[in-house]
């Protein structure tokens, strides 16, 4: 067992390099996915059937054709068509397009779930459609979509493990290397724990975003209140609960 930890210690810098690559892919993929999701989500709600049809086709195409196929298409096919792309760029592109298509449905659904009265109020205030979306509808939809986006972000993090197929030295690749010097069980347990911790941190960040988004809408406590160690002042109810 000691030799396992010695090997882990020796491999630590390389494993951290792998974590760094995985994080770059996750964050880069998530940012691209969000950009695509908001664009396609808004286009998919347009009344113009051509615009809507275009957005729907893109969404269904990238949802339906499997992440690995997309990754391989960008990595193996594009160079043969004369387009050479960096592996990191290919990874971010495939992850961003695939999860962006899934997230576009979340964005669309959340915008549609903002209560009708809010839309009517913006008309009553004669806001332009851009003002309406930016100042009234989207902030509310944002609070609604965070839980689903949080799930997708975890999926995206897990999805990054496939970039080892396109020669990238991500965390999965480094764990596979570690296995040579340690026993299988040890190496993969370490790998799974690192992924789990990363996923857990991402979930916490998303929960913080949700608290913040709700606070901005005047619901719930602020992020600072939520993070403070003292038990939050919840008024009479908590006192009664403590007494009973």
């Amino acid at each position: 067992m000691d030799s396992n930890f010695e090997a882990l210690g020796a491999a630590l810098p390389r494993i951290l390099d792998g974590v760094w690559i995985t994080l770059q892919l996750t964050v880069g993929g998530a940012l691209l996915a969000m950009l695509i999701a908001v664009t396609l989500g808004l286009l998919a709600r347009q009344e113009n059937i051509l615009v809507r049809g275009f957005a729907r086709a893109i969404i269904e195409f990238f949802r339906g054709t499997s992440l690995v196929v997309q990754l391989f298409w960008f990595f193996f096919v594009l160079p043969q068509l004369g387009v050479e792309l960096d592996a990191m760029f290919v990874g971010i592109l495939a992850l961003g397009l695939n999860y962006g298509a899934y997230a576009a449905e979340v964005v669309r659904g959340s915008i549609n779930s903002v209560p009708q009265g809010q839309w009517e109020a913006t008309t009553a205030l004669s806001m332009t459609s851009a003002q309406r979306m930016r100042r009234v509808i989207f902030p509310q939809a944002w609070a609604l979509m965070i839980p689903s986006l949080s799930n997708l972000l975890i999926h995206l993090l897990k999805g990054t493990a496939i970039v080892s197929f396109i020669t990238m030295a991500d965390l999965t690749f480094r764990v596979d290397q570690l296995r040579i010097d340690t026993d299988t069980f040890f190496a993969y347990t370490v790998g799974l724990i690192i992924y789990f911790v990363l996923a857990y941190i991402l979930t916490l960040v998303m929960n913080m975003l949700e608290v913040q988004a709700k606070h901005r809408l005047g619901r719930g406590e602020s992020l600072r209140e939520a993070l403070s160690l003292r038990s939050p002042d919840t008024g009479v109810d908590a006192g009664e609960g403590a007494r009973s």
């Binding site: 993090l157 999965t172 764990v175 299988t184 993969y188 790998g191 996923a199």
Partner: peptide
Amino acid sequence: DFIRMTPIVVQLLFAYYA
């Protein structure tokens, strides 16, 4: 939660070598 929040690729490799 542990199984759900870790990549299936890593789980596949783990089981494959184990």
